[in-house]
Design a protein around this nucleic acid. Structure first.
Lengths: 260, 260
DNA sequence: CGATTACTTGAATTCACTCAATGGCGGTGG
DNA sequence: CCACCGCCATTGAGTGAATTCAAGTAATCG
């Protein structure tokens, strides 16, 4: 995948189009957002907790994480970011960043000035709302992570994380035949699920032996989606994907919501 | 505490004032927000997951929770809400609610129409930004909860939750002499920390025996704040409280943030 | 090809869980 | 007023899931 200098906005636009149709003006505004592309190796810090940056970033290629450390130096990954994600939108309204960001695979990110984005938000209220919505979806994912880490056993937990990964990657077109590139170490997966790296190895082995996943190299395949969903107690609803993006993952058209 | 019919907006205003000073117009707009006060007993559902409500609510008195259930019916509380919180601002931009809300103590909540709030947001961009900020702080708390549940042992986890509770309650003036009303069952605390109710009992006992907390009836006192903070690996920064609100909790004025 | 990093496996341990029984408190009704 | 019931909290005993420690294998990179 080559990096078009405006690939940043292209990805952003793709994602927002999943929610509502942009006007030409809105698309243009995003397109004109100046940015600086940076290439990262694995495990490089992007922003560090406590900083007050003047810029924010978008993931273009590869994967990134948000993480925090406990007092005794144990790491917990609190979010995984895939191409198209803007992990750090909180900087728009919170001065100091409350978690660190790092690449967890070779990775390209695009930096943009917060002031530029603020200007866009002021001029285009619908875009502002769309970014707000993004941060709300992130919060929804965090809620599911609390459940995952708090109440599911390791096997289910890992299955759930892989389900989430697959659905999110599919939404940005990075899945082919229920398989995708997966250059993430077990240690990182362990930090994302709150288990030890050793136990992650065992959990993945169990999933493999049960025929729920196939791992070769840095590549992951899901032979039986329904089984993995079942094993992971997974319902993609919390991802709040547009109907288009979620096609193929919702077994049936979503039921009319219950009246209040 | 009696319920002034406009107590809702009063609380909302109080909280927002912690971030920036409202103009008279802004204050008036909040004050004029129509609302309906509802009194709840313990453990009553307020909004159920999957609904598409036309209204949202604010907690006036007592405590509420956001929770989700796993497939086998185990509950995980993903957020606790105290007076002044608007737990359900996500409805502004997400159609279907992705978690349930319930009272976890006797409780008063104020419902308002989303359309009314949307109108306020359109007319008062600074208020819109302030509400957005609120949701970002909620996300920050969720990140800390993932760390808490994922990487800390039960003892530390419970201490951390109690620290968070005390700081947040203090910010809305519900703490006196490091003590506060605490009408929350151990089962609920267990669901918030991802441990079993039995183990919660043991953890609280240990904290009591170590002199970190005192519990009598539905009341909790913290004799030695520094010790509890230490035991809970607690740093209030993630709460993003205004400087005023956090007074007395930050050991020193926050250091100039590191440059990017 | 040698060095480093990632993964796997086994064994012993520990933290937290379930199950089960008991005690305290508050409310309700005879 | 006291007896009873239900909810909540406590405690003990046994179990189990996940951890740490340790060793060894496979893969990757310069």
């Amino acid at each position: 995948m080559t990096v078009d200098p405006n690939f940043l906005s292209a990805l952003m636009i793709l994602k927002l189009e999943g929610v509502f149709t942009l006007t030409g003006e809105e698309r243009q505004a995003l397109h004109d957002l100046p940015m600086r592309v940076v290439v990262l190796k694995t495990n490089q810090d992007i922003v560090h907790i406590g900083e007050c940056p003047l810029q924010s970033f978008l993931v273009l290629e590869g994967f990134a994480s948000s993480y925090k450390l406990t007092a005794d130096g144990v790491r917990q990954i609190v979010a995984l970011h895939i191409p198209g994600d803007a992990p750090d939108l909180q900087t728009l309204h919170l001065k100091r960043i409350d978690c660190s960001f790092a690449s967890i695979s070779p990775c390209k990110v695009g930096f943009f000035q917060l002031d530029d984005l603020r200007r866009i938000c002021e001029r285009h209220p619908r875009l502002s709302a769309a970014f707000w919505r993004e941060t709300l979806v992130d919060a929804s994912i965090l809620r599911e992570w609390v459940v995952n880490v708090g109440r599911r056993d390791a096997y289910t937990r890992v299955a759930h994380l892989l389900c989430e990964f697959l659905v999110r990657l599919k939404a940005v077109g990075l899945v082919e035949n229920s398989a995708f590139d997966f250059p993430i170490t077990q240690a990182n997966l362990a930090d994302a699920t709150g288990i030890s790296a050793v136990h992650m190895s065992r959990a993945l082995k169990a999933l493999r032996e049960d025929g729920l996943i196939q791992t070769r190299r840095m590549h992951l395949a899901v032979p039986d989606w329904a089984k993995l969903v079942n094993a992971g107690d997974f319902d993609p609803f919390y991802l709040h994907l547009g109907v288009n993006a979620a096609a193929g993952f919702r077994p049936a058209p979503q039921p009319k919501a219950a009246a209040l």
